[in-house]
């Protein structure tokens, strides 16, 4: 049997992280996690994940965006699909629409918080199929 697909969760809220771990492990994925950008870089360098699930607001309101931007501009990592977990639309009131502003940040997908387990799994499945994993 092929090695399980590895997903890196970058999330600073330990409780949400725990919930996501349960959802993803139940979905049959191997899960690693990081609670900030530095930890995330360490994890990525240790083992290249097949997909990154990333929170936008961590220590700073745009830490997730920064990390995603760095990854997408690094040829070594730019192929890793990123799914941004965000509540930025409702939280800040500024209109960040994945449809219209997606070009600005070329990540593979967005999902709204609080995350619905079925939605999360189907979105991940969809992204992985797209990138042939």
């Amino acid at each position: 049997m092929a090695q399980a697909v590895c997903i890196l969760i970058v999330e600073d809220d330990a409780d949400i992280l725990e919930a996501m771990k349960i959802i993803l492990e139940d979905g049959g994925y191997a899960v690693t996690w990081a609670m900030d950008s530095a930890e995330a870089w360490q994890q990525i360098k240790e083992e290249l994940p097949d997909l990154i699930l990333m929170d936008v607001m961590m220590k700073t309101p745009d830490e997730g965006f920064q990390l995603a931007y760095q990854l997408k501009n690094d040829p070594q990592y730019s192929s890793i699909p990123i799914l941004m977990v965000t509540s930025v639309t409702q939280k800040t009131g500024f209109r960040f629409s994945p449809e219209t502003d997606g070009d600005f940040l070329p990540v593979e997908g967005f999902i709204e918080k609080p995350v619905n387990p079925q939605q999360l799994l189907s979105k991940i499945k969809q992204l992985l199929q797209k990138t042939n994993k």
Partner: peptide, 21 residues
């Protein structure tokens, strides 16, 4: 309201996972 959102999201996620998984 902003400060309430994050813990609420965590509570909801944990409860949902507990119930569904």
């Amino acid at each position: 309201a902003h400060e309430l959102r994050a813990p609420l999201a965590a509570i909801k996620s944990c409860l949902q996972v507990a119930r569904e998984y």
